[in-house]
Nucleic acid binder design. Structure first.
Lengths: 138, 138
DNA sequence: TCTTGAAGCTCTAGTCACTAGAGAAATTAT
DNA sequence: ATAATTTCTCTAGTGACTAGAGCTTCAAGA
């Protein structure tokens, strides 16, 4: 049995975040000492690590909740879990593609401006004013 | 002079967002009709398009505020504008690099799971439980 | 055993950039 | 004149936390 501070360090999740996860029902309320302090066991640590890892990979709290719910039914098919992960992969790929388009535009804009002119001639400012100068959609 | 609805359509920014921008001081309060409705001119449209474009490129409201402020001093050096844009480019590149690492892990996780097994054997769930299975840091 | 200082508790409010909804008033079209 | 649409203000909600106030409990050293 360990305190919330120890759990926090073990899992790499901040103390207020753990309390927040409990508040929204993502983790179960733990035992309490007589003085009302939280005490956790190994199972809590494992779950919190799971959550942390999934958050780091970009899963939403909602998706993580669904995965945990699935985990409670070991005899069910894992099709749903697979689907959630695949969707997360697609979302990530879309974000990458979108950011790459922005990168191209930003590179073009900054390449044109060396920061040594006057504001009135600044390509950064004029490019932002005029979407027509962009080479692709975004 | 046109209404907030027309401005909204012209700039591609939703009506409540325009009011929000006014509230936080990103755009100036416009004229009002006798009946208290907002009426805008061309200058407002240009500024709103500028904001929209910069937002689409990922600039924060704060950065946009700084760029607008610069725009009010045409005789100053554009070094600061250039710096803001370069920082935005760096941020974007970091985000892309980070998302690419996540993509690799997600791809690996989903490749291992065809969704036809049982939850108890699911690679998605076990991979999320065990960071040690990851091939790179994230 | 006492004391001190760290760690814990609850609760509220703030972050960012909006978005949604209620209920009333103004404007536009028929 | 009436009906339909738009606009107004205001409050509250979103996601995923983070920060702070003011209080209590715990663990370690003297």
């Amino acid at each position: 049995m360990f305190s919330i501070g120890v759990l926090s360090k073990q899992a790499g999740v901040k103390v207020p975040t753990i309390r927040y996860y409990e508040q929204i029902g993502l983790i179960d309320p733990p035992f309490r000492t007589e003085g009302n302090q939280r005490r956790y066991g190994e199972a809590s640590l494992e779950r919190l690590k799971f959550i942390k890892h999934a958050r780091d990979l970009g899963f939403s709290i909602e998706a993580i909740g669904a995965l945990i719910e699935l985990n409670h039914h070991p005899d069910k098919s894992c099709a749903e879990a697979s689907q959630i992960a695949r969707q997360q992969l697609l979302d990530t790929q879309h974000k990458i593609a979108s950011l790459k388009r922005l990168e191209v535009e930003l590179q073009r804009i900054t390449d044109h401006c060396h920061g040594d002119g006057m504001v009135s001639d600044c390509y950064v400012l004029s490019a932002l004013s005029d979407h027509g100068k962009c080479t692709s959609e975004h």
